[in-house]
Structures are given as C-alpha cells and as structure tokens.
Design a protein around this nucleic acid. Structure first.
Lengths: 112, 112
DNA sequence: CTCCGTACTGACCTTCTGGTGGGTACCTGA
DNA sequence: TCAGGTACCCACCAGAAGGTCAGTACGGAG
C-alpha cells in the first residue's frame, strides 16, 4: 500500500494497514472461523495465490494483528489466529463490512 | 484499486470503493466541513495533486457517493458534497477512523 | 525409490496507481 | 496588454502492487 505519512486522519492510518487486496478477507476469516492452518485459509479464499497469502499474512503478523504458531512436525503445520489487537481491528471493520454487504448490488452495478 | 470480484464478503466490496489513496480523506472532509469547492478541498488535503483529487472525485461521483454542483460563472465554481448514500458510507467508516486514531502511534511504529 | 502433501522462498513479469509537467478557457484587475 | 485565479484535461513516466512459475525440505505411502 502507498504510504501517506504523516497521516491526516485515523482513516488514512487504518486503510494503510488494512488496504492490501486480501487483508480484510483474511482478518474476517480468522475471526469468523477461529485459528486456521495455512492450507485451510488458502482453500477458503479461493482466488488468492500462495505467494500473496503468505505476503499478506507476514505483513499482518509484522503489524501485530495476526499470531503465527508453527508446530514442528512433518508434514509442517502452521496455525494463524488473530491477536487481541487484531480483534479490535476486526471489530472496527464490522460496520464497513455490513455496509458493503447491504450495498453490494449497487456497488457491483456502479463500480466498473 | 484492484478489483476482486466476485466479492467474498462485504468488506471486499467496501474496500474496493473506498480504497483509493485519498478517497477516505475526501469523504471525511466533505462530511466534516460541509460542501466544499474544488480549491477548498485541495487546500485542506495539502499533499494531494490536482490530477489525483479530480480523479478521486470523479470516481466517487460515478459511484454515487459525492454530488458535483457546477455553477456556470466566471471564474468557474464547482461545489462537492456528500450524497445520502455517501453519508451512509462515511458513517460506516467512523469506527475504522477511530480505531486508526487510537492506534496511530502503534501503526506508525510497526508499519514500515 | 519415486510421488504426495505441507508450508514456504525467489526470480521474473505485468498491471495499475499515483505523480510531473505541460495546456485549455474565461473574465478581472493593474 | 498581460498576469492572475478558477477548474479542469492530456501525455508521459516511475514505482509499487499483484501474479506466474519454478524450486526447497521433510517424512510417509505405495
């Protein structure tokens, strides 16, 4: 995402954090469906590529929104979950998600 | 913004609409400071370029979020304001804006 | 002994966003 | 006559975001 510092308002900052193409979806999934393994997450967001999903997860992890738990097994197993901080973001995103849900038809119609 | 249809959740759709670099700020300004002329808007969002501001306004207008009122005068005068639909979006964005405001220090620290 | 599944990594390429620097038309005031 | 202010438009370009395709390590199944 294009950085825009210093932020003129909280909205800038928030969009900076959650503006990646898949981040909101990942946050949503992790809140909605509990901790998920990498592969599970991937299967739930069908059109995302592995590289993209990893990239977004790494960024979310670096921002402290997502926790990564690796189990040292073979085959490898890694679980992703929301941190408390991540949960506060998800909460703040709810109204926006509902807005999008309610207006989806209109958005699809007017938005190129 | 990168389109992501069909949307997997309302959040996708909403971010698609509001994800432009300056859109949230413009929405915010128009709600907060009433109808504004092009030049006023420009002065309130200092780092935006004219081209970008116009582009974002056009898109917001096409999405039905912003109303454009041109007065046929010389020198030209154009006023931008939120539509009712735009106001509902602004409302849905509030919690996110507050989240960003409250966590701005953390965001600036952890976010590259 | 080769193939499968897991969770990645890296090189490379394409698409899109945002930025620069020019130009337009019109009237006003100096 | 000529600069100044308004609200734009257009061609071009740089860099970031996103995508494709290949490859890695490890053990178990066949």
């Amino acid at each position: 995402m294009a950085r825009n510092r210093p932020y003129t308002c909280g909205l800038d900052a928030a969009i900076d954090v959650v503006g990646g193409k898949w981040k909101a979806t990942v946050l949503w999934m992790l809140e909605d469906q509990g901790p998920l393994r990498f592969g599970e997450l991937r299967r739930r967001v069908p059109s995302v590529t592995e590289k993209m999903l990893i990239q977004q997860l790494r960024e979310l992890e670096a921002d402290g929104l997502v926790h990564r738990e690796a189990y040292h097994q073979v085959p490898p197993k890694v679980e992703y979950s929301l941190t408390d901080y991540g949960r506060t973001l998800e909460l703040a995103l709810r109204p926006l998600g509902e807005w999008g849900h309610q207006n989806m038809a209109r958005i699809e119609a007017t938005h190129p």
